[in-house]
Amino acid sequence: MTAENLRKYGVFIAALAVACFLPYIGISKFMLNVIIYAGIFSIATMSLNIIMGYTGQVSLAQGAFYGIGAYGLAILTNKAGLNFWMAMLLACLITAFVGLLIGLLAFRTKGPYFIIVTLCFNFIVYVVIKNWDWLSGGVRGQKITGPELFAGREARYYLVLGFVLLTLFIMWRISRSLEGLGFMAVRDNEPLADALGINITYTKIVAFMISCFLAGLAGCLGALHTGYLSPTSAHYLLSFNFIIYLLVGGAGTLYGPIVGTFTVYLALEFMKGIGEYRFMIFGIILILVVIYFPRGIVGGLKSLWKKVAGSRQAEEGA
């Protein structure tokens, strides 16, 4: 293994090894709980990365799709009495289908208009879930019971870990596929991509549907882990969170979403001791990160590595 490969895969393999044995290295129940949530949210952030990081369309509706997935699963198992796994697959497909409908409307707009349209959609979903009592349970929320196999916390941890890895694999495949290159072409230069024969609207909608499918998956896992759903599962603040995770980690990078989600979510959980002041500190840190590290942690590390490697090469050359 060359040094280049070691750098590329070493960190990943080390992290994976730790992740595989995490429940058995003596961490507290609370900590494991936090990590499971971070894993679920990192799937949602990866889903946002497809549409925002790779395709360049800032969607503020990711929280809504998370909620649609979660409520879809709950309603399909509770009201329709479907098998859990069937319901989960169906919930993700429904989320993708809603994404298709919204995409058809929203992608007629661009830039700031698109941001506002998606944010409004998220708000509508939240209010509808809150008020559509007989279907969603309204503000009382509703319970959700998963399969017996995943009643234990450790089992749910491995389930989430599996889906995080699966999503990461999907992201990796997308970023190297022709479709993925199409997404990035749309992001980098829309008129040029259009001139090259890429169907812009079609590309955006495909990216959006994949993104919604995965957001729905995250919602299903969130519902399974919490065991209880309330309208806050579809709140637009959730969309803000996902965007913050993505930007802190690094939009348009493979590991950025996971790094960002774990960094921000864990930091906020650890800062719970200082009460609500943590949001004040977090707000200030957020402003500084966006101003001084606009490419996020992973993007920042990448350019730092390039600089170090570049100067080393220059020294060797001299």
């Binding site: 800032v58 965007i243 930007l247 004040m280 977090f282 707000g283 200030i284 957020l286 402003i287 966006v290």
Partner: peptide, 17 residues
């Protein structure tokens, strides 16, 4: 656009708290 948006989120968190 999104960078200013995130700065705004940071600002509103600080104000609200």
């Amino acid at each position: 656009d999104i960078n200013a948006f995130i700065v705004a989120i940071g600002m509103l968190l600080v104000i609200e708290e």
